[in-house]
Amino acid sequence: MSAHAHNPAVLHHFADAEQQKESATLGMWLFLATEVLLFAGLFLVYTLFRWKVPYVWVKESYLLGITLGGINTAVLICSSLTMALGVHAAQEGKKKALIGWLLATMLLGATFLGVKAIEYHEHWEHHKVPGLNFTYTVPYDNAHPYKVPEQQVFHFLYFCMTGIHGLHMVAGLSILTVIAIMAYRDKFSTTYYTPVEMAGLYWHFVDIVWVFLFPLLYLTGNHYTGGH
C-alpha cells in the first residue's frame, strides 16, 4: 500500500510500477493481436480474390502507380525510426529530444496522410472510387468492352484496406499529440514512460500493416507491361 505512495504515476490498484508497466505492455500486445485479426479478414478477402481472378488483380494494381505509394512507404519507415528514437529519448529522460522526435513522427505521419489524400484525389479523377464514381477499365486485350465486377472489388478492397489503415494513422496522430503534450508537461521520467512506449508500439504496428499493404496493393501489377 505504502510502497508506491511516492510514485503518483502508479494507480491505486497496482502493487508497484513494475506490475503496472507489465500490465500495460501485455494489454497493448493483446490489443495489437486483435488488430492483426481485424486486418486478417481483409487480407483473406484479398488473397481469395487474387487467387480467383489474378489477371484482374494484376491489371487493376497496375493502375494505382507505385510512385506515391513508394514515397509513402519510405515516409512511414522514417516515421518508425523517429518513433523508436523518441522512445529511446524517453528511456534516457531527454525531454527535448523526446518532444522533437515525437513532432518529427507526427510530421511524417501527416505527410503520409497528405500523400494519401493526393492519391485518393487521383483515384477520384480516374473514376476509380467504388460505389461513387466507378468506371470499369475498358478493354484489357480486345475491342469488346465489358464489365468485370472484380475490378470494382479490387478498388473496393484498396479503399477498405488503406482507409482503415488511414483511420489508424489518424488515431495514431491523436495519440502522439496527447503524448507530446504530456511530455511537455513533464509527465514522464526515466522510470515512467509507459505511455510513450505504448504509443510507439501502436505506431510501429500501423507501419507494419503498411509494409504488407504496399506490395499487395501497389506492386502486384508492377511487372505488367500492358500486353497480354
Binding site: F49, P130, G131, L132, V153, F156
Partner: peptide, 23 residues
C-alpha cells in the same frame, strides 16, 4: 482473437450495401 474477424466482416457487409460492390 475471434471478435475482430466478425467486426471486419460486418464492416464489409455494411460498406458493400452502401457502395454496391460485391465481395
Amino acid at each position: 482473437l475471434a471478435t475482430p474477424v466478425l467486426a471486419i466482416t460486418m464492416v464489409l457487409v455494411a460498406v458493400e450495401r452502401f457502395a454496391g460492390v460485391g465481395i
